Amino acid sequence: MSEQTLARPGVTIVPIHGKTPKIHETAFIAPGCVLIGDIEIGAESSVWYNCVLRADVFTIRIGERTNIQDGTIVHCDPPHPGDAEGSPAVIGDDVLIGHMAMVHGCTIEDRGFVGLGAIAMNKSRIGSDAMLAAGAMLTEGKVMEPRQLWAGRPAKFLRDLPEPAIAGMQAGVMHYTENAKHHAAAIAAAGLT
């Protein structure tokens, strides 16, 4: 992975415990974001305005072409007695995470979707092509199988997703990948680099 850990315009990057965020050179990190500790962000991913990714106690891994939208918080939990594996935050490729989501110590498989204001808690799993609806709360240890829609607080299975819904999520991934390039150019044009 080609990485850039140097300062980015308006982004706070904080090394802690000897770990510094590793950000692919093609990833877009918007001004106002705070990235702390043992984070890796893959190619063409985007982290939008005012997100906080805090890997001070364990790891956060983000794949390629994934977008984490404005105001989202990503955190993790360390290994401890009774939980030797801990709860890293593992986010795959082509994932959509909506505005103001809370992603904590969970796994989101490739092409998973987290809706606006949704919460995914420790050791929960969102399967590939699955959708956690806006405002839903996926409680600790719950597993969403691939292509499922879950909603509610606590979230429960509603139905399997049809092909048009899955295609729509992938269109969203393409939109954010392209839109990130426009924002990076606008920031550079404004002299903020």
Score class of each variant (00 low, 15 high):
residue 97 I to W: 02
residue 114 V to N: 03
residue 75 H to P: 02
residue 7 A to C: 13
residue 108 I to K: 08
residue 66 T to F: 05
residue 54 R to D: 09
residue 110 D to I: 06
residue 119 I to C: 07
residue 32 G to P: 03
residue 39 I to M: 08
residue 100 M to V: 12
residue 11 V to F: 02
residue 38 D to W: 09
residue 104 H to F: 11
residue 71 G to C: 06
residue 89 A to N: 00
residue 118 A to V: 04
residue 99 H to M: 11
residue 37 G to A: 05
residue 100 M to H: 14
residue 113 F to D: 02
residue 56 D to S: 12
residue 59 T to F: 15
residue 121 M to V: 05
residue 35 L to P: 02
residue 86 G to R: 06
residue 109 E to P: 01
residue 34 V to G: 09
residue 32 G to W: 02
residue 95 V to I: 09
residue 42 G to V: 03
residue 41 I to P: 00
residue 10 G to M: 06
residue 114 V to T: 11
residue 40 E to W: 14
residue 54 R to T: 12
residue 75 H to C: 03
residue 78 P to M: 10
residue 34 V to T: 15
residue 17 H to T: 14
residue 92 G to M: 00
residue 30 A to L: 08
residue 92 G to V: 09
residue 14 V to R: 12
residue 118 A to T: 01
residue 108 I to A: 02
residue 51 C to L: 11
residue 118 A to D: 00
residue 77 D to Q: 13
residue 73 I to S: 09
residue 110 D to K: 11
residue 63 G to C: 04
residue 112 G to W: 00
residue 93 D to P: 05
residue 79 P to M: 07
residue 50 N to S: 14
residue 53 L to Q: 02
residue 112 G to F: 03
residue 102 M to T: 13
residue 62 I to N: 00
residue 44 E to D: 15
residue 82 G to I: 08
residue 42 G to C: 03
residue 29 I to H: 00
residue 114 V to R: 01
residue 49 Y to A: 11
residue 31 P to A: 04
residue 6 L to F: 15
residue 45 S to C: 06
residue 82 G to D: 10
residue 119 I to S: 04
residue 74 V to F: 11
residue 37 G to C: 08
residue 122 N to G: 12
residue 20 T to K: 15
residue 10 G to F: 01
residue 102 M to D: 10
residue 122 N to T: 13
residue 109 E to L: 05
residue 9 P to D: 07
residue 8 R to F: 12
residue 78 P to K: 07
residue 68 I to K: 05
residue 34 V to K: 14
residue 20 T to C: 14
residue 112 G to I: 07
residue 69 Q to E: 07
residue 74 V to K: 06
residue 90 V to G: 04
residue 28 F to N: 01
residue 96 L to S: 15
residue 70 D to Q: 14
residue 40 E to C: 14
residue 62 I to R: 02
residue 16 I to W: 09
residue 61 R to I: 09
residue 90 V to Q: 14
residue 107 T to D: 06
residue 90 V to N: 08
residue 53 L to C: 09
residue 91 I to M: 07
residue 58 F to V: 12
residue 29 I to L: 01
residue 70 D to C: 11
residue 50 N to K: 12
